[in-house]
Design a protein around this nucleic acid. Structure first.
Lengths: 200, 200, 200, 200
DNA sequence: TATGAATGAGGGTTCATTCAT
DNA sequence: CATGAATGAACCCTCATTCAT
């Protein structure tokens, strides 16, 4: 609780934020630890008190930022009191797309790191995430929709892969169409994926 | 044509193949030019007679290897004498998935380089590809299906993104399901995407 | 005397013992102060309350451990009530060899630190030793044998150098012979050294 | 033979000599590779073309310098046409002591590196020495005296250990006596060691 | 063309030491 | 007395690139 403890958190946060800025601006390969500490205003040795190397800080950033993204979408979903499964899925997807449209830097950061395999990270490796709140929220969501969906994990995998990979270029470069032009087709396809997995 | 000319080609090929092996084994970041020339059996200076740096050799590899993949699928498609558009699309997708299932190293190499944005590379940047045969084949294919498809580029974009991102984990890790378990769902979804874009 | 005083001694001892273990295991060059304090379970700053640096703790260890070795040999010698000079010398040498044969780690530690020049340390530098009991015991011993030996310091120098340097490899590696095979030759040579210095 | 090859040797020699000077002046622990290359007038990277690290250059120096010492003593011995074994041994010992008395820096360098165990290095590890001429010369010498000596290796071990450890302090500090005062006693002792091993 | 020795800037990492708590 | 976060100098080592041969 003391002043020291607070100071530590400030240093850590400062390093995280600075690293995020530099990684998204110059790329992780062109960012040196010297760059990070200089911009963060701490000594070089201090970096190593908090992180193993720049890949460590990078993965911690990734977990933290993308967890927030998904968690806040789920929170809002609950606040809305939505009950229908299809509506739930669309709400979450839509919320995340909106957030990423507003925060293109975050979109680039997440895309570069996850590459193909967006969902692997989101759905499987709780060991990697290490963030209990997020992991449990994801699990809960999948169990929740499991009542009406035959294979909820596979369905979410397909939806997330399709969405994650197709919105990137649309949001950032309006290519091959703008995100607003893409959405109708995307949602129609998602809808048909849900159909496939809905028990009749 | 002469012996010298041949020797040059041998050196170039040797560097390309060696670089591919090292990049896929150790990753491009952990591969130095010293590593490449040593394994290829040429002198350090020789490298610079053929390539600008290791990113240059990497992008040339990417273009070459993935062009072959797509071109050979199209060739086989023509050989089969398929006329139906839907069948054409399925044939090409299936052929590429088969090839990548058999050559996982190539799958990893392509995935790591393209990340999200598989289709951007395949459909758009002729400047990047610089390979006429491949670029024209792609163009031709898109024009070909344009007769029955309302927005062929967007449709191919969605199909390729969905396919490219979802098969990676399935082929390499059998996660969340094996490629054989994924295929029925993938093809059903592709089918519904084609439906969306088919003029009635 | 109080509890605080005791606690201080515990910390100091803990640091000394930990340092000994690490120095003999990893070598002094590969042992950092961070290593020592971590293993000893004290804070970094605490180290500097007791020692100047790792070379300080090393030399204090050396003095302490080798003093004990020699002092206990002399004590046992007195207990035995030996009177003959030649017997005294052999008893002390034998006792130390036995002790070092049983404690090879200590042998390595002393050897590494003293290198050539075993006797310089034992016979001369009272400034380095700073340990009165040990210094006086040595002095007393030399004076004691001075009655029958012409140049007791030089004689002890030669005996100690010969012994100290030849037993190391024999005890640790059985090279070029085992310590038991070496002993007869060693003692015969020591005997002839004593002869040289014995007044007739 | 070319100019390049010569230049390489010059660089290597320069690094070796510079390192020797610095190691003997400042000690190996206080000498950085930056110090060495700066004094040698080459770039940092050049160091690594010839040596693995500073311990590598150190051990190469040790082998080279001490080989020369022993080899030149043997050469002179042969030139003298000495036939008596006892005389041979005394000649070699005397020659080396003379050389080390004249080159105290070399004496310190060798002493610091070999510590106890001078003879282990000289008599046993041909793998460490890697210098054929020296190794074979040593072997030859030992075989040579084997005709009249029962266990020539053990005898040489004892002589070398006694000599190596006792002359150090005498030459460098005149302690406990000067080298000239030590010699008579040393030789008398060596003589009695030879006696022990001489077959009657 | 081909070579490979030489370069030296640059990056990652360690660690003794300090000092506010 | 004791702590341990913070420091930043120092060091090791790599490696893309050049250029005389």
């Amino acid at each position: 609780m003391g002043k020291a403890e607070t100071n530590k958190q400030i240093k850590r946060e400062s390093l995280l934020n600075t690293a995020f800025d530099l990684f998204t601006t110059k790329g992780i390969n062109n960012t040196s630890i010297a760059d990070i500490v200089e911009a963060a205003g701490v000594a070089k040795g201090t970096f190593y008190l908090y992180f193993k190397d720049k890949y460590d800080i990078n993965s911690k950033l990734l977990v933290h930022r993308s967890s927030l993204l998904f968690a806040s979408a789920l929170t809002r979903m609950h606040e809305m009191g939505i009950t229908d499964v299809r509506e739930k899925i669309f709400f979450v997807i839509d919320d995340i797309i909106d957030a990423l449209t507003k925060d293109k830097v975050l979109l680039m950061f997440i895309s570069k790191n996850l590459g193909l395999g967006f969902s692997r990270y989101m759905m499987e490796s709780p060991a990697v995430t290490e963030e209990e709140p997020f992991a449990s929220a994801t699990k809960e969501f999948i169990e929740d929709i499991g009542n009406t969906i035959s294979d909820p994990r596979l369905m979410m995998y397909m939806i997330i892969e399709l969405t994650g990979s197709s919105i990137y270029s649309a949001i950032l470069y309006d290519k091959p169409v703008t995100i607003d032009e893409l959405k109708p087709h995307l949602y129609k396809t998602i809808s048909s994926i849900i159909d496939q997995f809905t028990e009749r």
